[in-house]
Design a protein around this nucleic acid. Structure first.
Length: 592
RNA sequence: GGUCCUGUAGCUCAAUUGGAGAGAGCAUCUGCCUUCUAAGCAGAGGGUUCCAGGUUCGAGUCCUGGCAGGAUCACCA
């Protein structure tokens, strides 16, 4: 049992014995003592004073005396108002450290037998990935690791929005202007290649609209509906749905190019998934489900034969599920996907990592599945994250203000190389080793930049200011790890032992205390689906280590035992840094 | 207009879920490389936590009402 839980239970016992009152576990708060006071942990006794009918100071003192009697690890205490500051014995912290140092799986929680499916990435197959996808990928990947660390059985999947009018737009533009060129013939990465035609479509479309307004005297609204290329794209969509072989062939080919481009980016970013789902493979199933729902009378049909669900009893609205012409809408395919996934996995929980612009959509999805009495409805969880803003506002693909994922990664690598060269850190590195280091640092900086922010919040990215490598950043943490590795390379003794000193230096104790907090950080990150908890934990750990490193000699001590102990502290710190960063999907180098 | 989210130092973010005088980083200024990697450490300045009420021993955190920004409420995805 951890220290806080022990203190809480004994505080409950104390209040019971001293004041004959039964209090709840969660009415006892145990905090880390603020650094301006003496002590390690603080119990807030204000909630008990009404049972005691005494002054807070007196209550705190009485409880402290009881605790000191019961628990042998308390060395002394002080009381400030209703705050009881407890100091634990150094030998107790040392004992705690010995346990951590010898526990290879420290932090990893016991298996829960809970099966979790996590969907992330979810790109459209008509344009390349951008910064928004990057946030999605990093949050999704890290959250999956957080949940695994919490003992759940996690399976990552993705969804490709691989059909629909947008995809047809790229296709029609390629047919018209592509002259048979391919990613291979042009040397352009597949997703960028197809994205080029998506942009080309819009250019042609705008020109046609302008022409119709000018020459045919149409209103702009009318022209936007009647531009020839739009009509052609729509016709193509109909043909696609009718399984026209030529169109299907083109679609397969162009999507293939896009996937190859995506795979490249995934690999660079270090993200992966177990199984892809495709909108093209599920929208028909969704349609069937809607028709079944209609038959079961949980949905209703309007006179124009469109199908709806009434969610007014669940604090939502009426929602369209199938158009009057029988074609599916966005939510239709999500119903199909949810069903298919349950057939595939029988998961207990299904997490969707999707931007907060779709909050309403996921409420509707869940409530609709509830209405259908699907067993997996309650397991739907929308992990909603905020958009990435530019200084000029929201990114808009149509206005070309997106930050391209591949460009950004390239920039990060170049910046990492520049900084590293300036610092002369790659002396003695082969070219391959140097490149690997730039990769590690550049990506580490980018991932940390994204992951240190609470997912729920919008975040700002300024393309003009490169992402920092100093201070509260990924490279800072990586650097701390590399420093430790350097020490471990130099140390020739054996630090795998139990240590047994009477007292600790404050820098040593602070480091042990931060190591001790690691499991709590894992649990909190899991409870809140929030990798930023781990990111901030790792930063604190590195920061405290650097202080320790600066204040105390690790290798050069008269007493060899002291050196062994400090090396052991450093080695354990490095291990926890590596593990925490691994959860975030960030590698740490041995030299930098 | 309805619903939901956000608002904390000049900027980017924290704050143990209601606990002590709100903390870090960047930027600015001052020190520290003749001992283990200075991508580091130590220190200084910088705040009406959007505003006004309320609940509480105690509010950045909870409740009410405003203000500002954003999202969403499509037979778009």
């Amino acid at each position: 049992m951890n220290i806080e839980a022990t203190l809480k239970q004994n505080t409950i016992a104390a209040v019971k014995k001293l004041y004959d009152a039964a209090i709840e576990l969660n009415s006892v708060t145990v905090n880390d003592t603020r650094k301006e006071f003496e002590g390690d942990l603080t119990i807030v006794v204000f909630p008990f004073v009404r049972f005691a009918r005494k002054k807070p100071e007196q209550v705190a003192t009485e409880i402290a005396e009881y605790l000191q009697q019961q628990l042998d690890f308390i060395s002394h205490f002080n009381v400030v108002k209703g705050f009881l500051n407890l100091s634990l014995k150094d030998t107790y912290w040392l004992h705690t450290f010995n346990e951590i140092a010898h526990n290879e799986t420290y932090g990893q929680q016991e298996p829960t037998n809970k099966k979790v499916l996590l969907e992330y990435i979810g790109p459209n197959t008509n344009k390349p990935l951008h910064l928004g996808h990057i946030r999605n990928m990093f949050i999704g990947f890290a959250t999956a690791n957080v949940l695994s660390a919490n003992g759940h059985d996690v399976h990552k999947v993705t969804i490709y929005n691989d059909r629909g009018i947008a995809v047809c737009k790229s296709m029609i533009a390629w047919q018209k202007t592509g002259k048979g060129e391919t990613p291979e013939s042009t040397g352009i990465k597949g997703d960028h290649f197809v994205g080029k035609y998506y942009v080309a479509y819009d250019k042609i479309y705008q020109a046609q609209v302008a022409e119709l307004v000018e020459k045919e005297g149409m209103t702009e609204k009318e022209a936007k509906q009647k531009a020839p290329i739009l009509l052609e794209a729509r016709e193509m969509l109909l043909k696609w749905e009718a399984n026209d072989p030529e169109i299907r062939q083109l679609w397969e080919t162009m999507n293939g190019w896009v996937y190859n481009g995506f795979f490249d980016t995934y690999k660079k970013l270090g993200v992966d998934y177990e199984k892809p789902y495709y909108e093209s493979g599920t929208y028909l199933l969704g349609k069937e489900m809607v028709l079944k729902g209609l038959k079961d009378e949980v949905f209703y049909q309007k006179e124009d034969s469109s199908i709806w669900v009434d969610l007014t009893e669940k604090q939502l609205d009426h929602k369209l599920l199938l158009r009057s012409d029988g074609t599916s809408v966005y939510i239709t395919q999500d119903l199909g996907i949810a069903e298919l996934r349950y057939q595939d996995y029988q998961m207990d929980q299904s997490i969707y990592v999707v931007g907060d612009e779709q909050n309403y959509h996921f409420k509707v999805l869940q409530k609709t599945l509830e209405v259908m009495q699907k067993p997996y409805a309650s397991g739907i969880y929308h992990l909603s994250y905020g958009m990435v803003d530019l200084p000029t506002g929201k990114m808009k693909s149509r206005e070309g203000t997106t930050v391209d994922a591949d460009d950004l990664v390239q920039e990060m690598l170049e910046t990492a190389a520049k900084h590293t060269a300036e610092l002369g850190k790659t002396e003695g590195f082969s070219e391959a080793e140097a490149n690997e280091l730039y990769q590690t640092i550049g990506l580490g900086a980018l991932k940390y930049f994204i992951l240190k922010v609470n997912p729920q919040k919008r975040m700002l990215f300024n393309p003009k200011e490169s992402i920092d490598f100093l201070g509260h950043t990924g490279p800072f943490i990586q650097y701390s790890h590399a420093r430790i590795q350097s020490i471990l390379r130099k140390y020739t003794g054996d630090y795998a032992q139990n240590f047994n000193f009477e007292s600790l230096q404050s820098a040593e104790k602070e480091l042990i205390q931060q190591l001790y907090r690691y499991p709590a950080a894992i649990v909190e990150a899991g409870r809140d689906y929030d990798p930023s908890v781990i990111a901030n934990y790792a930063y604190q750990l590195a920061k405290i280590f650097n202080k320790f490193y600066n204040e105390l000699p690790i290798l050069n001590n008269e007493d060899e035992k002291v050196s062994a102990f400090r090396v052991s502290l450093a080695a354990t710190t490095a291990r926890i840094i590596r593990q925490a960063m691994k959860i975030l999907g960030i590698d740490v180098p041995d030299r930098m």
